[in-house]
Structure formats: structure tokens, C-alpha cells
Design a binder for these strands. Structure first.
Lengths: 339, 339
DNA sequence: TGTTTTTAGTTAATCGATTAAACAAATTAT
DNA sequence: ATAATTTGTTTAATCGATTAACTAAAAACA
């Protein structure tokens, strides 16, 4: 605290001026090998660690990036993705640190306090994970700080963003199910109007159907919310509908998991009677019985990608806004029967 | 960036000296209502946000606390608790912010770089989540920064710590199983030598047995690792042993989940043939079929508690080291049969 | 009324770094 | 040999706050 070893102490101990120590440290001037060594020795001996706050003050950058994660209330969908967040966060932290940056987190409910944090701490960049109300994005713009959005379907093209090819993902899932020999395939979705993601995922389903010349039937699409209970409900609806469906493509693992539970309770066996495939690859999914086949994203890649994009943008703020779309992979487990 | 509104700007605009603005802001001197108002108006009009780095420099505190979370490799046990981490983290961030502090994270693999972060950023306090090698704790001590450990069974009594009453937890689980009428109850554990947690959980199991005058039999204890595959293995061993066991108390949900899978594959029904109870209450556990009865901790409470403890310690660094033990709750679902 | 105390505000040093400008000594060029 | 350049280092201003010490004016006291 009071006895912090400062650059001045090092200078004194090495018999040079503070400026020299600074120059040795960041190599912006030629310093003789002799003094360089004396300074380095002093640093080592005194165990000097520079004060980044002070440096930040004079350099006008903080080497600090902010990560906004949604405030997760227990029970909300976000909750299920908790492990996603922490994995992305870990990956961001790792890659930021490689570049000499530290990460400040803000589990925000998107009130303006986050903006304040950005200003107070002179954040050099911000990575925003998840969705927020419109006004949040409006406010963010004003900061003039480079920002990268992850999984944020914000129509505003002001921001750099990283997302996943949702349509392609459910295309993959549906195609796989069709290749397994199913022809009557239902689609379980969250709310289709509000949610851009859901709409895109529906598109992929349609596309796969098209490719095989299978007619798209609206009565095969079951719309609910993206949660466990909704999965149960939709499976009940499906059974009551008496449609001759042999497989379900769910637009989210949590829906698929609910569906599996609902089917189980009605005495329907997965995959023997009805097959199910999901989307997300939650941690849960591989521990279910049967293991849930699904479409997964490489989560840590997202973090790395975001960091890279952010640093590009920090180095070149006028860079035109970019959108990076990460690939998806089919994960084959045991919830889809091959006919 | 270059056009940051500073305290000086506010002073100029309000027609007072910078010092006055500062005094208005932190109320350490009596200022007339008149100038107070002029200053506040100027602040509002200019949208002034103080620079916390600068403040930190002159105040010698950073209003920053560090949170160390383990580097989670895919597949490791930590991975399963990912959602724990992010929930604790969220809770820490929330309660820290209420007190005007921000949170810097470090997903460390416990190399010395963390220490450096603490010094570089002048962290006011540190919360450490999870277990680390001994040398990590040794190094931490040197910083002289208040530290609170969460779920870290570090024998060194130098640190404040927050943990859970592990013995009591498995006591609860075992007692519940016994009350359901089971008398031949196996215990599935992780490695019992190294891991203090596992030993404590075993103790609780024994205690519940004792209380009912049921003999403790070492052949009822199955030792493996704390992961899914080990759960499957142990269930195989159990079946091969031909012991007349009707229930399993698992020392971790992930073990219980593996066991359920293993039993299922051998055609044994849970809970009809064998009952299973876990410990942790992973997110997963309630989505299984049947839902896994288990012992849960209130995770967000941990974060809140840690923050409170940390701030106490920051205000009074000489405070004797405290250990807080949080309660556990039995969660009844459908994996234990009542006989 | 003159003296002391209180109130309200300013000046200037400080926190721990960076860096432009100045400068002396050593090298090179002419 | 002298001027011009290069090299290595120091001086001092700066970043944006806080705060001890000082001062002037107003209020309280004798």
C-alpha cells in the first residue's frame, strides 16, 4: 500500500532518472546496454511491478476491456446458457490477457450504469454477450468505444458482431434426420415473431425439406417458448394432433429435453417411437438417456474471435463494421433412429 | 478520448476551483448550497463522469476487486460446475457494484501472473473460487491484500473462507434415504485420500448410518473419480458385487448421473430397482428422467457472503480469519423410492 | 469595537507513470 | 580541426483526480 515500489525507487536504486527506467521498460529510446542491465537488475531486486492505473492515466488507455453479460435470473432461459457465458468469458479473458489486457465484467440488466462504468474506467473496448433492449445499444454508441457483439441480433449495423449461422444449423439437423430415413418431421420452435433466431432456424428446416422435395406443412411447426416446460407442452400437442410424425427437430436443446420428458411420460420411447434432435449442445445433453443428438457451436472460439475482432477495431477505429459467422457442427448421439 | 470532460472543465464551467468540485463530489468539506448547485448543474450539463483511475492514483485504492476462477478445461470436473462459477461471479459482481466496486476476473491456471495482476491494478481485495496448488496460496499471502476463499479447502488458516457443510450435506441425503425405508445404502465417492471434501461427505454418510444403528460396511463404499464415466463404472462394480443394495448416496451429482446411466444400461430401473441421491444440484439434475433428488447449496448466497466478508476484511485488515459455513438443503425429486 | 472562531473557497503538492524538449558527450562528416 | 549528427540521459510537464495548508470573509464572542 503505502510501501509500493515505484519507478522512482527503481531509478534511485539503479542510479538513473525515472525517465530512463521508463524508457528501458518500453523500449522507446535507445539505452546503453550497461544502464539497461543496471535498471533490470534493480527491477528484479526490488520486485518492481508497474502501476497500470498510473500508466493508464498518462497513456490515455486503460488496457482494460469490459464484458457485458446478461443478468441471469434463476429460471430464465439465460440460465441454461450460463455455462456458455462462463466459457466465453474464460476464453475472452485468456485471449485478452495474452495481449496484455484485463477484463472487467458487468452482469448488467442493461441500465445505463454500464455506460458509466465504461467512462469511469476508460475501457478500451467492450464485448457484449447476449441480447438487450434497443435503448442499450443506442446508449452504447455514444461512448465511441469499440464494441463487439456476440449472439446479439441487433439490426443496427453500427456494431461489429459475431454470431452463428442459425439457418445452416437447423438445416444440418434436419438434413441429418432426413438422411436417417424420416420423412414426417416436426419442428419445435420458440416464439417466431419476436425472435429473429427462431425465424432463421425455421428457414434452415424448410430448406432441408425443400432439398429433398418434401412438402413443408405448417401444421408440423409447433411454436412455444424456449424453455423446458414448453418442450413438454409441445410434445403433448404433437401427440394429440395425431400427426404421423416420426421425428422432431427442436430449435433449442432445452426444448428437445422437455420434449423427451413429455414423450417419456406418455410412454413414447425416444428414439424407438419418435426421434429428437436439438440445437445448442448444452452441457446437459450428453448426459441424458438417450444422449441427445444436436448441433453445437464451438464456444471458446467465439470468445477468441470476439477478442481478435475487438483488437482490430481498437487499432483501427474507422474499420467498417464486420459480421463474423462461426460454423456449427452436428453432434451425433442416440436420440435419432436410423430407419 | 482526448476530449474527456474532466473535473477541471466542470470547475471552469461552474466558475470555481477544481478542489471545490472535488469537495462537492465527495462531501468532505462544507460547501455553500449556492456553489454546490452551480457545480452540480455544470456536472449534469457537461455529463461529467469522474475518472476512477485518476482517483485511484491519488486515493491509493482502486475500488477494484479481483475474482480468481479456475481455468476450466473441457471435460474436467470444473466444467460441470461452470454454471456455478458464473452464478457466483454474477452475484459477486452485483454486490460489489452495490458498494461502488468493479470486478476484474482472472481465469487463472494459478501461475504467478495472477499475483502480478493484483499488484498492477492495485486490487483492493480478492475472491478466490475453487482449489489451487499450494504455492498459489503461499504467493497470495505476500500481497497483503484481503482475500476470501470460496470452496477452497486450504488448510492454511491465514485466509478467510466460505464453504459448505459437506458432512452435514451427505448426512441429510443419507438420512433422507434411510427415512424412505432403505437399509442397504451404498456410497459413491471421488478419491478419498487426496480430497478433503470427499472425506467429509463420507463422514456424514457414516453419521446418518450410526444414528439409526446401521452398521457401516466398507464394502458399501465405492471409490472412483468425480466424473460421469466414473459414475458408470462404479455402478457396474456395484452390480457385479452382488451386494443387496437398494440405494446409492453419491457424493456428487455428476457421479449420480453417471450411475443412473450405468444402471439404465444394465436394465436396472431408477428408482424402482435402485434409488439414487446426489450432491450439488447441478442444473442438469432436474431435467433428468427421473429427476435426481439431491442436496443443493444456495449459490448466489455464496457470492454475496464472500463480498460481505471481503469488505469487512478490507475495512479491518487485522480482523481474525473467519470461516463461514453455508447451509445446505435437501431437494426431493423422483430418484428415491419410498419403501 | 476588537478578537476569536467558523465557514467557504483557493493554491499547490501529490499519486506513479509517460514523453516532449533540452542537453552533454561521443561519433561522424567535411 | 571544426561542424554536424547521433547517442544516451535528464528535466520537467502532463494525465485527472485528492487533500493538506492557506486565506479571506462572515459569524460569534468578549
Amino acid at each position: 500500500m503505502s510501501n509500493r515500489i515505484t519507478l522512482k525507487d527503481v531509478a534511485q536504486s539503479a542510479g538513473v532518472s525515472p525517465a530512463t527506467v521508463s524508457y528501458v521498460l518500453n523500449g522507446k529510446k535507445t539505452i546503453s546496454d550497461d544502464t539497461k542491465k543496471r535498471v533490470m537488475d534493480a527491477i528484479e531486486q526490488l520486485e518492481y511491478v508497474p502501476d497500470l492505473n498510473a500508466r493508464s492515466l498518462s497513456m490515455r488507455d486503460s488496457k482494460l476491456i469490459g464484458v457485458v453479460v446478461p443478468q441471469t435470473e434463476p429460471g430464465s432461459r439465460l440460465m441454461f446458457q450460463n455455462n456458455f457465458y462462463s466459457e466465453i468469458l474464460g476464453s475472452i479473458e485468456y485471449h485478452a490477457r495474452l495481449r496484455g489486457y484485463h477484463v472487467i465484467i458487468s452482469a448488467t440488466d442493461a441500465n445505463e450504469s454500464y455506460l458509466t462504468l465504461a467512462m469511469e474506467r476508460n475501457l478500451d473496448g467492450i464485448i457484449v454477450i447476449g441480447m438487450y433492449p434497443d435503448e442499450f445499444y443506442q446508449q452504447m454508441k455514444k461512448t465511441n468505444i469499440p464494441i463487439v457483439l456476440i449472439d446479439s441480433y441487433c439490426d443496427d449495423h453500427y456494431y461489429h458482431s459475431i454470431r452463428v449461422d442459425d439457418a445452416y444449423g437447423s438445416y444440418l439437423a434436419t438434413k441429418y434426420v432426413l438422411e436417417c430415413g424420416h420423412t414426417d418431421v416436426a419442428f419445435f420452435a420458440g416464439q417466431l415473431k419476436e425472435n429473429g433466431v427462431m425465424k432463421k432456424r425455421l428457414t434452415g428446416y424448410q430448406q432441408a425439406l425443400n432439398e429433398r422435395n418434401i412438402e413443408f406443412r405448417t401444421e408440423y411447426v409447433f411454436e412455444g417458448k424456449i424453455d423446458y416446460d414448453s418442450g413438454i407442452e409441445l410434445s403433448d400437442k404433437l401427440l394429440k394432433s395425431k400427426l404421423n410424425v416420426t421425428a422432431i427437430v427442436a430449435a433449442a436443446d432445452i426444448l428437445a429435453i422437455g420434449a423427451m420428458k413429455g414423450l417419456y411420460e406418455q410412454g413414447i420411447k425416444v428414439p424407438d417411437d419418435i426421434s429428437v434432435i436439438g440445437f445448442d449442445d448444452l452441457e446437459i445433453s450428453k448426459y441424458l438417456t438417450p444422449g441427445l443428438s444436436t448441433v453445437k457451436q464451438q464456444i471458446s472460439q467465439k470468445g477468441e474471435c470476439a477478442v481478435e475482432m475487438l483488437f482490430n477495431s481498437m487499432q483501427n477505429p474507422s474499420l467498417s463494421k464486420q459480421e463474423q459467422i462461426l460454423p456449427l457442427y452436428l453432434v451425433e448421439r442416440n436420440s435419432v433412429r436410423k430407419i
